[in-house]
Amino acid sequence: MGCMTDRGQAKACPTCGFDEAKPPELPFELPIRTVLNEQYLIGRALGAGGFAITYLGWDIRLARRVAIKEYMPSALASRPENSTQVVPHSGPSRDDFNYGLERFLDEARMVAQFQENPGIIAVTNFFPANGTAYLVMEYLEGTTLKEYLKDRGGRLPFEEALEIMTPVMDALRELHRVNLLHRDISPDNIYVTTSGQIKLLDFGAARQALRDRSQRLSVILSEPALIGHPEGRLRA
């Protein structure tokens, strides 16, 4: 469940060391080996962002690895122990949860529009379950551009930077052609696979551009947020 290779009789996986017996790291994770939609086996959690948990998954039918993103906003909802259900807190949180779920669907539809684009992460399925919803994507081996940069000491030679950013710009051109703005291009959202492909992730901030310019903008962030979140420091 750590890498989806057969571990035979061993307790811990000989390939990746994952031990299913160990307790989960992240709060509210789906139990390991949960089956979703009669098709996907849930493995270890790859990461969580406070409003979504991403798991390594196994597509039982197609016999391949997938990444599965679950809408799980920890401020608005929780998962009872040993349950697979996501339960919104009572009161205004319930409305906010439902609203966020709708936006999650919008996000899925937006990414799904660009399946042919090699620079954008591929979406293979989206379905409701457990009181929430799941986005199934291709599983990518690699790192974010942020980690990649860190490993390289924070700087890249121009040619390499251009090589990385060109597929991103190609992808953006496709978005802009249908009047969509990504609005969150950052090293966090650009993925560099081990085979050298570049993929744009996370369309959570993407929106239709304002067609009607009689409407005033309320925000123009003229430079990207200078401080990373959450481990950055403020600029005084």
Binding site: L76, F104, A205, H229
Partner: peptide, 13 residues
Amino acid sequence: VFDFASSVGKRRD
């Protein structure tokens, strides 16, 4: 505030 915005799917809005 960022966490709240993200949880309702309205990051940057």
